[in-house]
Simulated scan of single mutants.
Amino acid sequence: MKEDTTEKKTQKQPYTDAYFEKGHWGLKLWQTIVALLGWAGVLIPLFVTALSYLGVRYHWFKPLWTYREGIYKIRFIGVVLLFAFVMVLVFSVSMAIIQNRKRDRLVEQWPTYNPINQKKRTSELDLFMDKRFGKAEFRQNVRNYRVEPEQNLETHEIRQLFDAHDIDDL
Rank of each mutant, 00 (worst) to 15 (best):
R121V: 00
V88A: 10
K119F: 04
R103P: 01
V147G: 02
Y72V: 05
Q160C: 02
Q151M: 07
I158Q: 02
T10G: 08
F133T: 02
M129F: 12
P45D: 12
K8W: 05
G78V: 03
L127K: 14
R132V: 04
E3R: 13
E137M: 09
F138V: 07
Y113M: 13
W25A: 11
E157Q: 05
I77D: 14
V80F: 11
F20P: 01
H165R: 15
W60I: 06
Q109K: 14
I167T: 03
E154D: 11
T5M: 14
I74F: 11
Q31C: 08
T32H: 07
T49N: 11
P14W: 04
P14V: 05
L46H: 08
I98R: 15
R75T: 05
P111W: 06
I158S: 02
I97G: 08
R105K: 15
I33A: 15
W65Y: 13
K62F: 02
F91L: 11
W39E: 12
I77W: 11
T10D: 12
Y19S: 09
V107F: 09
R132W: 02
R68D: 12
P14Q: 11
K62S: 10
A96Y: 07
G70V: 00
K8E: 15
A96T: 10
R103S: 10
M1N: 15
I116R: 15
Y58W: 08
L170M: 13
T16M: 03
